[in-house]
Amino acid sequence: MRIVKNAEERKNEILDAADELFGLKGFDGTSTNDILEKVGIARGTLYHHFKSKEDIMDALIERYSARLLDAAQHAAADRSIPVVERMIRVVMALNLSGGSSKEIMEHIHKPQNALMHQKIQKVIIHGVPPILTDIIREGIEQGMFHTPYPYECMEMIVIYANTIFDDDMVALTDEELLSRMHALICNVERLLGAESGSLRDTMKMFGMNPEAQG
Results as ranks from 00 to 15, higher is better:
residue 5 K to D: 00
residue 5 K to I: 00
residue 6 N to D: 01
residue 7 A to P: 03
residue 7 A to T: 05
residue 8 E to F: 03
residue 8 E to P: 00
residue 11 K to I: 04
residue 11 K to L: 04
residue 11 K to P: 02
residue 12 N to H: 04
residue 13 E to P: 01
residue 13 E to N: 03
residue 13 E to C: 05
residue 13 E to T: 07
residue 14 I to D: 05
residue 15 L to W: 03
residue 17 A to R: 03
residue 22 F to G: 14
residue 23 G to C: 06
residue 24 L to Q: 15
residue 25 K to S: 01
residue 27 F to L: 11
residue 29 G to T: 01
residue 31 S to P: 06
residue 32 T to C: 10
residue 36 L to N: 11
residue 38 K to Q: 12
residue 41 I to Y: 14
residue 44 G to K: 11
residue 44 G to Y: 09
residue 46 L to H: 06
residue 47 Y to I: 07
residue 48 H to P: 01
residue 48 H to N: 13
residue 49 H to N: 07
residue 52 S to K: 11
residue 52 S to H: 09
residue 53 K to Q: 07
residue 55 D to R: 08
residue 55 D to A: 09
residue 57 M to R: 02
residue 57 M to F: 00
residue 60 L to H: 10
residue 60 L to K: 09
residue 60 L to R: 07
residue 63 R to S: 05
residue 66 A to K: 04
residue 70 D to L: 02
residue 71 A to V: 04
residue 72 A to K: 12
residue 75 A to C: 04
residue 75 A to R: 00
residue 78 D to A: 00
residue 80 S to M: 09
residue 81 I to E: 03
residue 86 R to V: 01
residue 88 I to P: 00
residue 89 R to I: 03
residue 90 V to L: 05
residue 90 V to T: 05
residue 94 L to N: 03
residue 95 N to T: 06
residue 95 N to F: 05
residue 98 G to T: 07
residue 99 G to T: 07
residue 100 S to G: 13
residue 101 S to A: 11
residue 101 S to G: 01
residue 101 S to R: 08
residue 103 E to R: 10
residue 103 E to P: 11
residue 103 E to G: 15
residue 104 I to E: 15
residue 106 E to T: 15
residue 112 Q to M: 13
residue 113 N to A: 08
residue 115 L to R: 12
residue 122 K to M: 12
residue 122 K to L: 14
residue 123 V to D: 09
residue 123 V to Q: 06
residue 126 H to R: 13
residue 129 P to V: 13
residue 131 I to R: 01
residue 134 D to R: 14
residue 135 I to K: 00
residue 137 R to Y: 15
residue 137 R to I: 13
residue 138 E to F: 05
residue 140 I to R: 14
residue 141 E to N: 11
residue 141 E to C: 04
residue 144 M to T: 09
residue 146 H to C: 15
residue 149 Y to T: 12
residue 149 Y to P: 01
residue 150 P to A: 08
residue 150 P to I: 09
residue 154 M to G: 13
residue 155 E to A: 13
residue 156 M to D: 14
residue 156 M to F: 15
residue 158 V to I: 15
residue 159 I to W: 01
residue 159 I to C: 06
residue 160 Y to G: 05
residue 164 I to Y: 04
residue 165 F to G: 15
residue 167 D to W: 13
residue 170 V to R: 12
residue 171 A to S: 10
residue 173 T to L: 08
residue 173 T to S: 11
residue 173 T to F: 06
residue 175 E to N: 08
residue 176 E to R: 08
residue 176 E to C: 03
residue 177 L to Y: 09
residue 178 L to W: 06
residue 178 L to K: 10
residue 178 L to T: 12
residue 179 S to W: 10
residue 182 H to W: 07
residue 185 I to S: 02
residue 187 N to M: 09
residue 188 V to F: 08
residue 188 V to G: 08
residue 188 V to T: 11
residue 189 E to Y: 14
residue 191 L to S: 12
residue 192 L to K: 01
residue 193 G to C: 08
residue 195 E to W: 08
residue 196 S to F: 06
residue 198 S to L: 04
residue 199 L to C: 11
residue 202 T to W: 03
residue 203 M to V: 00
residue 206 F to N: 02
residue 214 G to C: 10
